[in-house]
Amino acid sequence: MNLFEVLEQAYQTAQAALEAAEDTATLEAWYADTLGRKGAITLQVRAVGQLPAEDRPAFGKRVNEIKQALEAAYTARAEAVKHAELTRQLEAGAIDVTLPGRPVTPGHLHLTTQSLRQIYSIFGRMGFEVYDAPDVELESYNFDLLNIPEYHPARDMWDTFWVQHVRNSPTRLLLRTHTSPGQMRAMRERYPEPIRVILPGKCYRYEQITARSEHQFYQVEGLAVGKNITMTDLIGTLTQFTAMFYGPGHRMRVRSSYFPFTEPSIEVDMDCILCGGKGCRVCKYTGWLEIAGAGMVHPVVLKNGGYDPDKWSGFAFGFGVERPAMLKYNVNDIRYFYGNDLRFLRQF
């Protein structure tokens, strides 16, 4: 075997060893053994002295070629090995992506707040501003000025919590049984402007607490006063509200009713969302659910509010806030609302 053949053989051996190197340590050892100062290929240069002079340039050239080729192959191999090693290392750090996330506790708005905000927003678009009135009310605002004198049969419609004497109170006090006293307050404050307000708030009734009735609940009252406001405007306003609040496609009906502070008085029903109008226990087998009591503001009430009933007219409506949510989410007990069981409130 001549020296050329020895060189070629060393080259082949080095190539095979390089291909077999799987990790950085082997690779580095290969480099030292092959291209290092005492490496197999490096040492080949020394053999040049044993060759005839005419062969030396060719041999030297070949050695350089091989060195360059091996250097390049080494670089490529080192890259590949490094990548493979990183991959192995990352795979070792795999996590169970199905494990639960680190706990973060979100907060929740009370269901009533959410309902109220929807109501504010819908009526806001129709130009109704939110007007606040107190919870502890004068008897006159809650009753007398609303055309409900003492001992009048209409008072039977509300079971009242009466308040013990309060030092600086002008008359008897009570916890408002409905949001209607706010009508009187709004009118007396705003005269002679036209009015478009909604009056949300807590109301109180001296009633036994059951799954269907609470002693404290929220109502929203609406009041519009102007020069030419009519019953069809009232029906239209409530129709718009129903479509936005309960979603489109509901049927409505308007019934005659009685409230002392409106004349004419109506109640507005919507097809029962539980049975689709076929009749069920909740709708008392009528297929209809009452959604609001309403009417044209009684002339006496307008007058008590400072508006001349011959020049002004108005409508008013009122509805409970809890009931729509109860229907929507199938809540069968109103006590959940203010019992504040967080397991209930966190569902909304």
């Binding site: 020069k227 406001i229 405007d233 308007v254």
Partner: peptide, 20 residues
């Protein structure tokens, strides 16, 4: 029969708008 009534929206001048 209120059920036969058409539906309208208030045509009035809007009251002065206020924020709460």
């Amino acid at each position: 029969g209120y059920d036969h009534f058409p539906v309208t929206l208030i045509e009035e001048e809007l009251p002065p708008l206020r924020r709460n």
